[in-house]
């Protein structure tokens, strides 16, 4: 996907939808943000109108923005006793079920992100819809526009608990029958909540609270130093030599 194509797509999008879409371009890919209330009309136009013709919905997934930018190691301040290897697990699932972060107050925690592909015009577009309510994330279902999105929405519901309004068959899809919780939410521990084993006395498989301890092998670190900039420059230099 060339820059040129993208720019003209962005121009067309801006001309057609105006303030309905918030469009950004990064890494040569266009992203449009749209409010849930306008989603269905915008999506229908994106599929049908000349200049867009996004006949195929390639991918849809949920994203949980809880803890975005959160780290386990403070690298900006110098501490008196240096970095300890014993890191308290905070980020991304490295906590027990009892310690999971509970009072969560970030606006727009959940988003549903989908990728569109136009085979006719050879262009792609990423669309993001934020869910207004963190406690009951709801977005309209796209199944009426692209029937193939059915399972992708079921997956997003299963893993993130995002409800797709108007979906004909919003069942769990990947997790076990009778599973409790939405495992890809950032406040769901990586080790899970329950474990199963066969009980020889009861002669059946039983569920028990998980017995293993969460571990942090590599802490989550965001470095604000010149590493990345330097890395980029070095890569560019090297590439020129080749």
């Amino acid at each position: 996907m060339s820059e040129l194509q993208n720019n003209s797509l962005v121009e067309r999008l801006a001309a057609r939808f105006g303030d309905l879409l918030k469009i950004t371009v990064a890494n040569g890919q266009a992203t449009a943000e749209v409010d849930a209330q306008h989603l269905l009309s915008v999506a229908t136009s994106l599929r049908d109108e000349a200049g867009f013709r996004f006949g195929e919905l390639v991918d849809l997934c949920g994203v949980d923005y809880l803890g975005y930018g959160q780290t386990e190691w403070d690298t900006t301040d110098v501490s008196g006793n240096g970095f300890s290897r014993g890191v308290e697990g905070e980020a991304v699932g490295r906590f027990t079920w009892a310690d999971r972060p509970r009072d969560v107050s970030i606006p727009n925690r959940y988003a549903s992100v989908f990728h569109l592909l136009s085979i006719e015009l050879n262009q792609r577009l990423r669309v993001r819809v934020f869910c207004a309510d963190n406690d009951l994330p709801v977005v309209p279902s796209l199944t009426g526009i692209w029937p193939g999105v059915n399972w992708f929405e079921r997956e997003s519901f299963d893993l993130f608990g995002i409800l797709y309004e108007g979906h004909p068959d919003l069942r769990r899809i990947l997790t076990d029958y009778g599973f409790v919780g939405h495992p890809f939410r950032k406040d769901f521990p990586l080790i899970g909540n329950v474990e199963v084993r066969y009980d020889p006395e009861l002669k059946r498989v039983i569920y028990e609270p998980v017995s293993i301890e969460p571990r942090v092998l590599v802490p989550r670190v965001i470095r604000d130093d010149a590493d990345l900039i330097q890395a980029k420059a070095e890569a560019a230099d090297h590439w020129r030599e080749n």
């Binding site: 390639v58 949980d64 930018g69 780290t71 991304v92 193939g148 399972w151 670190v221």
Partner: peptide
């Protein structure tokens, strides 16, 4: 989000879309 670990990875598997039909 700038960290040494991905914030979110989603893998789009062709088989998943195909089987849904």
């Amino acid at each position: 989000d700038g960290a040494n670990k991905p914030f979110r990875v989603h893998l789009r598997a062709p088989g998943f879309a195909h089987l849904s039909s």
